[in-house]
Design a protein around this nucleic acid. Sequence first.
DNA 1: CTGTTAGCGCTTTCAA
DNA 2: TTGAAAGCGCTAACAG
Lengths: 335, 335
Amino acid sequence: MTNPRTHITLEHVAQAAGVTPMTISRFFRTPQKVSQGTRERISQAIEKLGYVADSTASRLAGKSRPMLAIVAPSLDLPYVPEIIEGVSEAADTVNAALMVFETRFSLEMQEKRIEAAIGWRPDGIIFVGDTVSDRSRRQITASGIPFVEAWAASDTPVGVDIGLSHRAIAAQMTGALIGAGYQTVAFGVRRLGYRVEVERLDGYLDAVSSAGRTPLVVDIADPGEHYKAGAMILRQALDLTSRPDALFLAGDVLAAGAIFECHRLGLAAPLDLAICGFGDSPISASIVPSLTTVRLPTRELGYAAVGHCIAGVPERVGLLAPEPIERESARLAFE
Amino acid sequence: MTNPRTHITLEHVAQAAGVTPMTISRFFRTPQKVSQGTRERISQAIEKLGYVADSTASRLAGKSRPMLAIVAPSLDLPYVPEIIEGVSEAADTVNAALMVFETRFSLEMQEKRIEAAIGWRPDGIIFVGDTVSDRSRRQITASGIPFVEAWAASDTPVGVDIGLSHRAIAAQMTGALIGAGYQTVAFGVRRLGYRVEVERLDGYLDAVSSAGRTPLVVDIADPGEHYKAGAMILRQALDLTSRPDALFLAGDVLAAGAIFECHRLGLAAPLDLAICGFGDSPISASIVPSLTTVRLPTRELGYAAVGHCIAGVPERVGLLAPEPIERESARLAFE
DNA sequence: CTGTTAGCGCTTTCAA
DNA sequence: TTGAAAGCGCTAACAG
């Protein structure tokens, strides 16, 4: 609880303005039903006392101050803040507050965080995570809170699913690299234990096998920093028995790290090795050589998710389809 | 409000378990005071119904589920998610939930967001922003909620101030560049209208004038993407009448953008132009050439801030002093 | 070990 | 235009 001594409530404002608490409540809710004079006295009392209405009490009593919860693995990934930015932008249009719950890539934590989120009775839960446990599903259903999966498409969605098929996207990109003439396309992931990474890997495997090629995977479990992980993947890719002429990385920051490592080793992308990323992070357009990648509609996803939780969010026509972007680091060709 | 039809409360669980709501409350709060048998029945009822306790109601009634609010300009800055990560790490130790309010670099918004944050009655507000308005100050004081300024030190703090003097740090770094022998150190900022940028600029001006040099400032107001802004600053710096031999940028991502632009223009850092950043973002250690910069204790700041709001957060000995880091892109020398 | 009563700060409904 | 009564879902304090 907040400091009990200096805790201003409706009651205090009411006294200062010489009316009942009810009138103060009206002042906020339906000011036109409060007389001009009273309104002014109330307004002065509020400013003087520095009163701020208690949203939690309002909620309990029935008037819903909008609030959303977002459950995501960690802010230490380029796409999570991006999605949140989209959520926040949409939330602003209806003055919704935002809670953020991090799962830290653990399914156990994820279950706990979903439970915590439900406990705060948000108007919606926007979910950027892994498979939802049965226990969570029961709780979500029982709570009646809209639950939007906004990153990885689910086979068995709990609520609304506006997620992407990372598998299909990875397959498409792999195909585009093969189509561009690269003979040996290797794939690099940093497996954090989350489903999307596996999906991207599977997508790569799909495309490679359907092209009749041999898969070449560098799969590290390094929990460290992304750029360094990318460098590590690059070095391991160069050590593979059959040396690849293209390296497809499951993330743009990883790819940027790989490009930096190329500089360090005196290799030139794409001449010595083509490099392709995933996600179109801000760095990708600026790095030298600029990074071929696939743009994912992260912000749009976040924005759209809010519309499924709260009414009154202005619709926006945003492209929700992933968009391959050919830049300097690798060629791309589609059938 | 959440869906009224499927809205499970203590009452429902109590009925299902054949006890009073009070006993269910006890089950959560002080399970040892509930008999073994009852405990089991309750536990089953909870799981079966998917019941999750309402934290807002708990709070109102007196039992404080810990919750923190963080007010920051935007997640689209490298340091904000970093600070939040620190906050979140500390919050986890006491199971505190986190609300995030973005001000979008507007003082007007900032006032609104602070008010919104107070409305939710968090156990503390962690503030990463600009100057706090008088109105906000009144509200903060009246609310009795701990308010921690955790980024820019304030001359007139509202509550606890653990912020950094960006001015002093910028002055120190500028001095170190001059000390290393650079003749003409230019400064580049992307002014978003927030106080820290002005402070960093002032710090640069302090050091330059105390060294008897002429200041050379590139100050752009570009609202676009950070890497591109860095590139723009670099080009403008090269166009200055007296061409600098060192460029100090008010942020690492800007500096990285400047380095990329050097590559593009065929310039080599630090030979043609030394480049120095601010903040030690993850990219700085990996970019080629690696970036000389100053490390700011962002995560630690976030972590420490929580300790000022909630009791029971394990103390951590983290270095809270900024640390200049000399890498390849510029030499540094201190008196 | 379990229940009863009162009330957190606000809003709903009804009355004046 | 304003007020009084009741209650949101939960917990404190007391009783049994």
